[in-house]
Write a protein that binds this DNA or RNA. Sequence first.
DNA 1: CTACTATCTCAGAATAATTCTAATCTCAGA
DNA 2: TCTGAGATTAGAATTATTCTGAGATAGTAG
Lengths: 141, 141
Amino acid sequence: MSKGNLRDVIVNRLKSKGLRVTPQRFAVYANLCSRRDHPTVEQILKDLNQDFPISSQATVYTSLQALRKVGLVKEVLLEEGVSRYDANVEPHHHFHCRQCGSIKDVPWDTFDSFNLERLPYLAESYEVTIRGLCDRCTGNN
Amino acid sequence: MSKGNLRDVIVNRLKSKGLRVTPQRFAVYANLCSRRDHPTVEQILKDLNQDFPISSQATVYTSLQALRKVGLVKEVLLEEGVSRYDANVEPHHHFHCRQCGSIKDVPWDTFDSFNLERLPYLAESYEVTIRGLCDRCTGNN
DNA sequence: CTACTATCTCAGAATAATTCTAATCTCAGA
DNA sequence: TCTGAGATTAGAATTATTCTGAGATAGTAG
Ligand SMILES: [Mn+2]
Ligand SMILES: [Mn+2]
Ligand SMILES: [Zn+2]
Ligand SMILES: [Zn+2]
């Protein structure tokens, strides 16, 4: 009887990818799934351990690598020297606010009029990065 | 009487941005201008010093920062933990080959049909990153 | 041409992000 | 329950980048 709750959904996703469900790996993935802000390793680590220790730094790194290898998380590269992570692995684009630094998902169908056949390469995927001011920062100065 | 040669062009560009023209800074920018491969700091450094020492590592870093600050070079972020540099500061997109890792420029007008008004943000710029197999890697296996 | 000085360069130290090591532990299948 | 491949950990190692502070120099004013 699957209760269909979030815990079970996450456990089943890990298992279906052949990953062992360990408390640390579960915590990392669950944390990432609960957020929309594309956190860094440091932010995930701090969040996990804020009440009591759950996972070491090295384990957060290796968990993210394992999750990335099986396609449950993606890396997002928008800023110099900053690796961010995203549990949203469906194709989508990103908006990066130059003022507050926030990163927002942009729906895939925002740019659906691409003609990739013009390129002299075999294009397998693409992503658009948009920069500017987010809704909370427009109007500020 | 400008001779219009590459050396003068580069010197004038540096001066027009208010940068002092030092041998090291000249060498870094000239090297970047002569390449199409979006090199890393390490690759630039190795290239500059291959015959005899021209510039220290720290100076390559600071030169690139200075050049970036005045808009003569751009940073290109496509791979985890790798910062690449580009003297092509005109708006353009990038293709990244998953096989050989090469990075190619993609003309700006390849994607000229964007409707950025649909977004709830103030979009100031955008860039498309395409991944796949380059012309030299298609057909190989 | 010479002197001046703000800026630049450099080696080496410091910092920061990530990976490695190797000892110990544990999930999950039999 | 038993067992072993895979996971976890603290701390060391590695790698990328920045800092430091002392000496060098590009460009300018005289
Ligand atoms: Mn996202
Ligand atoms: Mn380019
Ligand atoms: Zn903002
Ligand atoms: Zn290729």
